[in-house]
Structure formats: C-alpha cells, structure tokens
Design a protein around this nucleic acid. Structure first.
Lengths: 210, 210
DNA sequence: GTGTCATTGTGGACAGCGTACACATCCTTT
DNA sequence: AAAGGATGTGTACGCTGTCCACAATGACAC
C-alpha cells in the first residue's frame, strides 16, 4: 500500500485517462455509487481538485466511466458474435447472431455486474448511443452491435419490414430486464443453472416473438 | 417552510413510519440516491441520531422505503387488473389479466420513476418477495400479483405445464427491462407514443412467447 | 533567450453526509 | 417509589464534493 507512483514532473501526462481508469476500477467492484472522485485522484497521485481540470464534476467523471464501460460491454458482445459458427444458411446465421448478441450482453452482466450497472444505469439517452467513446475494440457501440444484427435479420428476410422498426427496443428490453433483475433486483441469488435456463428461454421467446 | 410541527412531547409517536414517509417522499423525486437520512430526521423534527433507534443505518431505512414503494407498485398493478372487463371466456380473460399486470407495472414506472427505481433497484432477493411490508392494499406483493395471474393462465389451459415454471422470470424481465431502459437507460426521451407502442408490442411478444 | 499566457497542477476551506459515543428523558413494570 | 429499557439529544469524527486563490509548467512570439 505504498503511495502513488510519485510522478516525476509537475504535469501528470494523461490525468484524464488515469482518472477514468481509476473510476472504472471502483465501478467494477461496487457499481456507479462506488465511484468517488477524491479516491480517483488519490489513485492517480494527484490532489482532489486536479480532477476539475478534466471533468466538470463527479457526474461528469462517472459519465466518462460509463462510456468506457459501454465499450467493454460492446467487446463482450463482439466476443459472443465471433464465437458463432456459421452454417451457410443466411437466415439461420442471422438468427444465431442475434441470439449471440443477447448472450454476450448477459454474459457481461454476470461477469462484470459493477461495470454493467455503470454502463447501462447511468442516464444516457439514445441520441448519444453512437458516440465513439462508447465503442468497443471493433468500433461499434453496444447499440450499434444490436442494431446491425437486426439489420442482418431483416436483410435475410427473417424479420419482415413492418416489424423491423423498434425491434431494438423489444430485444434490448428483454435481456436488459433479466440482467437487472438478476443483479440488484429481486432475482439475485439465482443459481447459474437457473440463469442459463432463463437466458435461453428468453432468447427463444425473442426469436419467436420479434 | 416553517420548522417541523414541533411535537409536544419528548417522544415522537411513530418516528419509524415518519422516517419512512420522508424517505419515500425523497425517493419519489430523485430515486434511491436522493434518500438522505439526516434530511429524513429533519423532516420528522428530530435529531439525526434518533433514526438509529429504528434503523440500523441508512441502507436499512432505504430498504424499508423500498418495501413501501413495492407496495405502491402492487397497487398500480391491482388498479390495472381491476380495469379489465371480463369477456366470459376464461382463457381470454386470463391473457387479458396477464397483460394488465404488465401494463400496470409499466404505468407505475412512468408515473413514479423515482419510486419505481426505489422499489426494484435496491437489492432484495426473491426469498423475501412475499414479505407483508411489500404488499399493496389488497395484501399482495408485486411478485404475487404476477405469479397469481400466471397461475390463472395456467389453470385456463393457456400456459402448458412444462412452461409454467420460471414464467415469472420471462414476463418480469421483459417489462422490467423496458421500464429501466426508459427511465435511466439509453431509452430516455422516448415520446409517450413510442413508449405506448413499445409496451403493446412487448406485451404481445410475451403473450405469444410465454 | 526572454516575456507572455493559457493550461494544469496544489492548498486551504466549507458545508453536508453517515455514524459512533455518552448522556437525558420518558414509559412501564415491579 | 425505584429500576430499567426504550427512545430521544449533543457533540464529535472522518469522509465527501466543490469553491477559491495561487503556483508550476510548457508553448509561442519576439
């Protein structure tokens, strides 16, 4: 538990990113409420007020951390997507991919509950769902990953025209609800098996009901 | 903005309930994070530490407020249920009622966002989903209202045996997800019409997909 | 180089929070 | 009337987010 790395120069280098990293780390453990500005500056080896040169206030820092967390969520979704083995049948593949997106989302919720809540629980409207700072390693935000998988479903003829619009809402709501209920909500303490079962049934319902 | 009612006696009367009411009021405006213990004691006209005679800590107070909020959510669901006009056909009626439960849940989310988040976002596992302090005016908790409407669906023969178990998870996840996304999540700022549309499509999907 | 200046850091201060500890007041029971 | 538990008060502590004035730094014009 030594002090901070004691930067050599007066300037820090990249304080903004260091603060976001620290915030992300706290968020990982305790969710958005666990993000405390002073502690972030402490970890960066800097005085509390230094943070205000990079963020308007705590909320602002939290939003930056939330954006990063969304990027990590996107990565989890891309992971799941890459794990899909194509069958050659475009319609089947498109459906498999939509399912994978949902599975990836829920995997992220389960493996990184703190980050999940930080990503999707901090106010943040749709108009900014495409900001680059929310993108994962492949350059897509979670919303984009979902939307494009639905586009493919549409292109493959599985999802009829009149049901394409707003399909994001349905799909997202469903998996998001399970994630939230299983995390803080009344569904905590479900065994992994029960969650797996619920996940598959949910995805089946979406597949049929979209 | 006068001071507190200045209770006549040294004892308060029912401080516990007064604190819960104050907490509920704060939660109504700003959700769980807006519940501050000291402010609650101020509103009750009592010193900060008095709260500790009735609650272990802030979290404990918040949980009591959450339980009350769940009772109010149950009321909204019962309201929606009472608004259903029976058709005489048990199967149709059962389906209508399940839909009404979902609609009531989402109506509560929209009309009382702060209370909704207080009710369903504060950790709280299933094992305590039947506690009396979470019940509404008709004595049922939100979970019970849902579960019993699904029982009816099952009894009417609409929901086959093998799909009855865990059906709560599916139904609840779906509406809860929409509620959360529309509140703090990335779906804020949707117009009422869009929300209404999404709600109905979602309920339709559940009706078909359960 | 030297002077100027915006940028990015520090230090000290303040109010508000949750909570601990010691003490005061009241109600009930004997 | 005395005792004792329940419920309230007072004071205090460390922590938080944030404000203000000031200091160090690096970039650029001359």
């Amino acid at each position: 538990m030594s002090d901070a790395p004691a930067r050599s120069s007066y300037r820090h280098g990249d304080l903004r990113q260091a603060l976001i990293d620290a915030a992300l780390d706290m968020a990982r453990q305790g969710g958005p409420d666990a993000v405390v500005l002073r502690e972030a500056t402490r970890r960066a080896g800097v005085s509390p007020n230094a943070a205000y040169r990079h963020f308007a206030d705590r909320r602002d820092l939290l939003e930056a951390a939330s954006a990063s967390a969304q990027g990590l969520a996107a990565d989890a979704m891309e992971d799941a997507l890459e794990a899909v083995h194509g069958t050659g049948d475009p319609a089947v593949d498109a459906r498999l991919r939509v399912g994978a997106v949902g599975r990836g989302y829920l995997a992220f919720a389960r493996h990184e509950p703190g980050l999940f809540r930080t990503a999707f629980t901090v106010p943040n409207d749709l108009s900014r769902a495409f900001d680059a700072d929310k993108a994962g390693r492949r350059g897509r935000t979670p919303f984009q990953v979902l939307a494009e998988s639905l586009d493919a479903l549409h292109a493959a003829g599985v999802l009829p025209d009149e049901r394409r619009q707003g399909a994001e809402l349905l799909a997202w709501s469903t998996v998001h609800g399970l994630g939230m209920l299983a995390l803080d909500g009344p569904l905590r303490g479900l065994t992994d098996e029960m969650l797996d079962g619920a996940t598959e049934r949910l995805l089946l319902m979406v597949d049929r009901g979209l």
